[in-house]
Design a binder for these strands. Structure first.
Lengths: 130, 130
DNA sequence: CTAAACCTTCCACCTGCTGGAAGCTCAAGG
DNA sequence: CCTTGAGCTTCCAGCAGGTGGAAGGTTTAG
């Protein structure tokens, strides 16, 4: 499929997809006319990249995560250790996101109407326990 | 307090803190000697920035989120709508992060040992329902 | 056959930091 | 009091991760 279709399916703009190819995150085929030709596996990689980037993982971290699949040569233990490290990071992010949500939700409930006095809910956003 | 202390407490490097000041995200006092002087409220803002940036919110989004507090002039309804929009984004991120976690966890459990054949677990990472 | 909508490469620009130089300030030890 | 080192200041350059636009080839629909 062409880059436009891959963009739609992955949620990434074509520009970004070409950029990811430049920095070696994927290597789509080329059609006879010179157009890039994306497989469904390519689209999976792209969609994965879209998600993990939007969740705050760096490109290098994404490269590592992708390598969990592509690289058959790697030691299994090494792969597993990497995956577990990333799992811990994900758990930390989940907890932080949940706190952020709670604080914001509290704001929505408590600070309705016109009375928004000095209630320093920013403390909550900054991650304090109440 | 000085920038170094604020850096420790917020988890952001001094460089980044100065940068955030440059782009108008905070406005710490200055001590007599010209040093920046951070209040605990400043540190809360910084810590909030650290968290929300690391979770994939853009600087402009963070600016909006911070404005939920600082701007007393704003219409309460507008504030609430903004907060609710951000809540929905957070919920989406939470769901995506949970899926990412499940997929990676599955990888750790299932693809141990030496047999990592063509199992396209990448489908899971790419966000497919199983 | 022409126009719109694709695609290609290349280059410049933007965001969000980050490192380093040059210089001032402050706290501790001799 | 003086030095020494850590910490602060500003400024400027560079890197990461895209993003916009020009110039031109291709494909599809009328």
């Amino acid at each position: 499929m062409n880059i436009g279709t891959a963009a739609e399916k992955s949620g990434l703009p074509p520009k970004t997809i070409r950029y990811y190819e430049d920095i070696g995150l994927l290597r789509p085929d080329r059609a006879g006319n010179g157009y890039r030709d994306y497989s469904t596996a390519d689209v999976h990689r792209l969609k994965f990249l879209q998600r993990s980037r939007s969740l705050g993982f760096s490109v290098e971290e994404c490269r590592q995560l992708l390598s969990l699949y592509g690289d058959r040569e790697r030691e299994s233990a090494e792969v597993k250790a990497l995956a577990e490290t990333k799992l811990a990071e994900i758990d930390r992010k989940l907890a932080e996101l949940a706190e952020l949500r709670a604080a914001l939700s509290h704001l929505v409930e408590a600070c309705h109407g016109d009375h928004r006095p000095d209630c320093p809910i920013i403390d909550g956003l900054a991650g304090h326990r109440h």
